[in-house]
């Protein structure tokens, strides 16, 4: 089991007029090998939840075990940081070093590794995110395109060789091609870093890539579902501010109009419409 969350409650600024309960008794488990999605409205507690997973937010209530490390006791902070890689919203805003190679090597350097090991890790991570190491290593991260900067930021986290990778909206702000590339990249990374947890507002992405999805609403867990289970629950989808993935939404509109269509991809959708049309014209 990768991450075990039990009865997690978190309150920002407790005891002040601005007290706000961001998490309220959240309990669930993320298994090894999951591509785990977290969805919910803005302010529902998603970022607060994942900030607990690498110790960025201190446990206030409940218990949390991450990669075998019990965060409700005194624990080895460095070890946790090296096992759990965290990629924040718009991670490219946090790039800072003068070259790509130095930026990516920053984490391993902090682990106190040898220069050779740091260089090796930076090289591997840069290649893992699909960038040309020799071409890019000496460039400034700030003169890269949006999609490239996002990959460099991701490489910096991968250079720590985490066992679990946690990403907060990894494709936000990227163009359609960049989005697709990052998602394909995550599938490739998953072979080396088997557990991936991703917050996303993109329902097409969540339904195509995640095997399990947690829904948050007002700090409470509304449940953990497979994509099919979730998108069959119309009421929950609406209540949690979600939408159906596009193929499912178009299918639903067609069902309402008396056609028998249930597609989970554009190809399926086109095929089932054409076969209905073909049958009518046969």
């Amino acid at each position: 089991m990768s991450i075990v969350v039990k009865d997690l409650t978190y309150i920002y600024s407790p005891g002040t007029p601005f007290e706000r309960k961001a998490l309220d008794g959240v309990t669930f488990t993320i298994e090894d090998g999951d591509f785990f999605g977290i969805v919910g409205r803005t302010g529902s507690g998603k970022s607060t939840l994942i900030s607990h997973f690498n110790g960025l937010i201190k446990l206030m209530n409940g218990s949390l075990i991450v990669e075998g490390i019990d965060l409700s006791e005194k624990y080895d902070y460095k070890k946790l940081r090296s096992q759990v890689g965290m990629v924040f919203q718009y991670p490219e805003y946090q790039l800072f070093d003068e070259t790509v190679e130095k930026d990516v090597g920053f984490g391993p350097k902090n682990l106190g590794l040898s220069a050779a090991e740091i260089a090796e890790r930076a090289k591997n991570a840069i290649e893992l995110v699909g960038l040309d190491y020799r071409e890019i290593k000496d460039r400034s991260p700030f003169e890269l395109s949006g999609g490239q900067m996002r990959r460099v930021a991701l490489a910096g986290v991968l250079a720590m060789k985490p066992k679990t990778l946690i990403l907060d909206e990894p494709t936000a702000g990227l163009d359609p091609k960049g989005k697709e590339e990052i998602m394909q990249l995550l599938l490739r990374i998953k072979r080396e870093c088997p557990t991936i947890v991703m917050i996303s507002h993109n329902m097409d992405e969540v339904s195509s890539y995640c095997n399990r999805i947690a829904v948050l609403g007002g700090g409470k867990l509304k449940g953990v579902f497979s994509p099919k289970e979730l998108f069959d629950k119309e009421e929950l989808v609406a209540e949690a501010g979600l939408s159906l993935p596009m193929p499912a939404y178009i299918s639903k509109l067609l069902v309402e109009r008396g056609l028998n269509v249930s597609a989970s991809s554009e190809d399926e959708l086109v095929q089932s419409i054409l076969s209905i049309w073909g049958a009518k014209n046969a």
Binding site: L253, V270, L274, W277
Partner: peptide
């Protein structure tokens, strides 16, 4: 769909698409 010979015309929203499909069946 248009390329396959089922003429649904030019639509811009899922709702328009669903309507157009029903019309051309």
């Amino acid at each position: 769909l248009n390329k396959s010979g089922m003429n649904v015309g030019e639509v811009y929203t899922p709702e328009q698409l669903a309507e157009a499909i029903c019309r051309s069946l």
